[in-house]
Computed example of a mutant assay.
Amino acid sequence: MDFPPIRNGIDYLVSVVEHLDSDTCTGPREIKYAVLHLQAAAEVLLKSRLLREHWSLVFSDPAKATSEKFWASDFTSCGTDAAVERLRNICGLNITRKDAEALKNLGKDRNALQHYGLTHSAEAVESRAGTVLDFLLRFLDTQLLPLLDTQERESIEEDMSRVRSGLNTIDAFVNERMNRLRGNELKGATDSVLPCSVCGQWALAVIPNGAHCHFCGTDVSAEELAPAFQEFEPGHPVNECPQCCAPTLACFAFMDGAGEEVYYCFTCQARYNPQELTNCGGCGCLWPHEGDDDGTPQTLCGDCRRGIEEEELASR
């Protein structure tokens, strides 16, 4: 057997596209091996680039690296997240946040599959796999293949062709499905559609008390959605909704033409423009701006106003 690192990584990629081949039955077993082999490919190829920089960089702790342990393969290697960080900070590679997130999500899928069971749909796995495959092919083209000699490149040429063809098939599947959804389920709904955290597609349509992804079928509760979009925009914390009082009001931009941010409640679907809300003068929560025309010097939420009224009654 002769599987040097780069050829080994490409062989894993061939297995991925074979298991996601739309002409065959993409069942639980195919999904399982697609995820496992894609994660294996990512680890092998990222570390192959680290090896080209210096062999000590593949150790989990480079400070404890020794050549004896390296040549004997007697060491614990770094994980994917650490490999990405080192490629950025030491090798100076431009790995985007989107690509890094795709690799991180793949690692979570692999761990869930190994230890807890993976429940994503075939559509979600194929979409996520396509994102990582696209990154790894670009990574191979720019960072690894140029380093191979002619004989090495010729030895992997056929496999690379199979992987590129497989990615084209996945992209075609995703594009066809999204185009169908835009003409049907998502038609005219651009002001209520969000990116799905499972499949990555802009197909998560908000509904009362949550959202449903028309691409991969994922259902998400309001309680899960609000913190997720708080993470997307850390400057806009989740608040209680002035209308239903649920702590599921977040500020973000839907997939509309202008991309303008709105405050949206994932529970009752109340929607506010940012200029409509201001901080309550009592507790600081967000509340529709009242102005001074009602005799109050500042905006007060319902709870604070009731508190003041009760205090006034008690003092009489």
Score class of each variant (00 low, 15 high):
residue 276 E to D: 06
residue 120 H to S: 09
residue 279 N to W: 03
residue 157 E to C: 05
residue 212 H to W: 11
residue 52 R to E: 07
residue 118 L to V: 06
residue 49 R to I: 00
residue 22 S to W: 04
residue 233 E to Q: 10
residue 234 P to Y: 05
residue 220 V to C: 06
residue 306 R to A: 12
residue 34 A to T: 10
residue 267 T to D: 03
residue 267 T to F: 01
residue 81 D to R: 09
residue 187 K to M: 13
residue 25 C to P: 02
residue 16 V to E: 05
residue 34 A to G: 09
residue 82 A to C: 12
residue 201 Q to S: 13
residue 276 E to T: 02
residue 175 N to R: 15
residue 172 A to E: 13
residue 60 S to L: 14
residue 255 M to T: 08
residue 95 I to P: 01
residue 289 H to G: 12
residue 168 N to I: 11
residue 153 R to G: 06
residue 206 V to N: 07
residue 65 A to G: 01
residue 148 L to I: 01
residue 7 R to Q: 09
residue 156 I to N: 07
residue 17 V to A: 08
residue 138 R to W: 05
residue 216 C to R: 05
residue 300 L to P: 09
residue 240 E to D: 10
residue 151 Q to K: 14
residue 246 A to H: 09
residue 113 L to A: 02
residue 174 V to L: 02
residue 116 Y to R: 15
residue 36 L to F: 15
residue 59 F to R: 04
residue 137 L to W: 04
residue 84 V to A: 05
residue 149 D to I: 00
residue 135 F to H: 01
residue 60 S to A: 15
residue 75 F to H: 05
residue 181 L to F: 01
residue 177 R to K: 12
residue 127 S to H: 02
residue 310 E to M: 15
residue 243 Q to L: 08
residue 109 D to H: 11
residue 52 R to A: 05
residue 8 N to K: 15
residue 145 L to K: 14
residue 233 E to P: 02
residue 42 A to R: 02
residue 61 D to V: 15
residue 269 Q to C: 08
residue 263 Y to W: 15
residue 272 Y to H: 08
residue 53 E to P: 05
residue 182 R to Y: 11
residue 101 E to H: 12
residue 112 A to G: 11
residue 230 Q to L: 02
residue 208 P to G: 03
residue 279 N to T: 15
residue 39 Q to E: 15
residue 146 P to I: 00
residue 293 D to I: 14
residue 107 G to Y: 07
residue 121 S to V: 04
residue 60 S to H: 13
residue 232 F to C: 09
residue 125 V to F: 04
residue 266 F to M: 07
residue 217 G to H: 03
residue 291 G to A: 12
residue 247 P to L: 03
residue 181 L to G: 03
residue 21 D to M: 10
residue 106 L to R: 13
residue 114 Q to G: 10
residue 224 E to C: 11
residue 303 D to Y: 06
residue 283 C to H: 07
residue 26 T to Y: 13
residue 194 L to K: 04
residue 231 E to K: 13
residue 110 R to I: 03
residue 139 F to A: 00
residue 162 R to F: 04
residue 191 D to I: 03
residue 85 E to F: 10
residue 268 C to S: 06
residue 207 I to F: 06
residue 281 G to Q: 10
residue 294 D to R: 05
residue 163 V to I: 00
residue 190 T to K: 13
residue 171 D to H: 14
residue 264 Y to F: 00
residue 159 D to Q: 06
residue 197 S to W: 12
residue 161 S to E: 13
residue 211 A to S: 00
residue 36 L to A: 13
residue 3 F to N: 02
residue 54 H to T: 07
residue 277 L to V: 03
residue 304 C to T: 08
residue 56 S to P: 05
residue 186 L to S: 03
residue 252 F to P: 04
residue 171 D to N: 06
residue 122 A to E: 08
residue 91 C to E: 10
residue 221 S to I: 03
residue 273 N to Y: 05
residue 249 L to F: 04
residue 101 E to Y: 10
residue 186 L to D: 01
residue 66 T to N: 02
residue 272 Y to V: 02
residue 176 E to F: 14
residue 228 A to C: 03
residue 220 V to D: 04
residue 41 A to G: 10
residue 297 P to I: 04
residue 279 N to L: 10
residue 293 D to S: 13
residue 301 C to M: 10
residue 281 G to R: 01
residue 311 E to Y: 09
